Computed example of a mutant assay.
Amino acid sequence: MNAERGAMIGSEKWIVACGVEDIEVGEVVSIEHEGRALAVYRVSEDIFYSTDDICSHGYAHLSQGFFEDCTIECPLHGGQFDIRTGKGLCEPITTDIQTYQVRIRNAHVEIALGALLPDHQFTG
C-alpha cells in the first residue's frame, strides 16, 4: 500500500496512510512513503499507532509479524516492540524503533512524518 503525498502543517508533514475501513481491529498494514517503510496498527475501533516497519535488529518487516494488544513481534528473530513507544521489550532487540503521531481525518488514517515522537534506547 502506498501513502499519498503529505501536506506540511507547521513543521509536520501529514501523509494519508490508509482509509480507516482498510484496516481491521487487531491488524497491521505496511505502507511505503518516499522509500520509507511504515507500519500502521489498529488496536481498537478508534485507536491507531504507527512505527517504522523495519525491525532494528535485522531486516524484516514488522507488519509481517505477530501483532497482539500493543506488541508487535518481529517475524525474523522474535524480538518484540511496544507500538505505543517503540521500545524494545526483549532480546535480541538492542535498539528501539521510531514511532509517529497518528490522527484520523475524513475517514483516513494520517501519519505525521515531521513530528517524530522521542526515540527510546533499550534499557531492558
Rank of each mutant, 00 (worst) to 15 (best):
G19S: 12
G78L: 04
Q98G: 05
H61N: 14
H120W: 07
L89P: 00
F67H: 04
A107F: 12
V40L: 08
G79P: 00
H33S: 10
G79F: 00
L117E: 04
Y41T: 11
P75A: 00
C55V: 02
T85P: 01
I47W: 11
V29N: 05
D69P: 04
E21S: 15
F122M: 10
G10T: 10
P75Q: 01
A17V: 09
F122T: 14
L38M: 08
S44G: 10
Q80C: 14
G124D: 13
M1T: 14
M1C: 09
K13Q: 11
H57V: 01
H33Y: 15
R84A: 07
A3R: 07
E12Y: 09
S63N: 03
Q101G: 03
E34D: 15
I47A: 11
D82G: 02
G35W: 10
T95R: 13
W14F: 07
C74Y: 00
S44R: 12
T123E: 15
K13H: 13
E27M: 08
A17D: 05
D69S: 14
D52P: 03
G124T: 10
T51Q: 12
I47G: 03
G6Q: 06
G78W: 00
R84S: 06
F122G: 10
A39P: 04
E34N: 14
E21G: 05
S56M: 02
G114V: 08
C55Q: 06
V109T: 03
S11A: 12
I23W: 02
G58F: 01
M1H: 12
Q98Y: 09
V25R: 11
T99V: 06
V109S: 04
I104D: 08
E27N: 12
F122C: 14
E91W: 07
A7C: 10
R105Y: 14
K13M: 13
D22C: 06
A37E: 13
I104H: 06
Q121T: 06
G88D: 10
D69L: 02
G88S: 04
E110K: 09
Y41E: 08
D46T: 15
F66K: 07
G88R: 00
I72F: 02
S56G: 08
I111F: 05
S63E: 08
Y41W: 12
D96E: 05
C18N: 12
S30M: 09
H120E: 11
I83E: 03
I47N: 11
P92H: 14
V109P: 04
F67G: 08
T85F: 00
D69A: 11
H61P: 05
Q98K: 05
V20E: 13
G26Y: 11
T123H: 13
G114H: 13
L113A: 03
K13W: 09
F67D: 07
G124L: 11
A3S: 14
I111D: 06
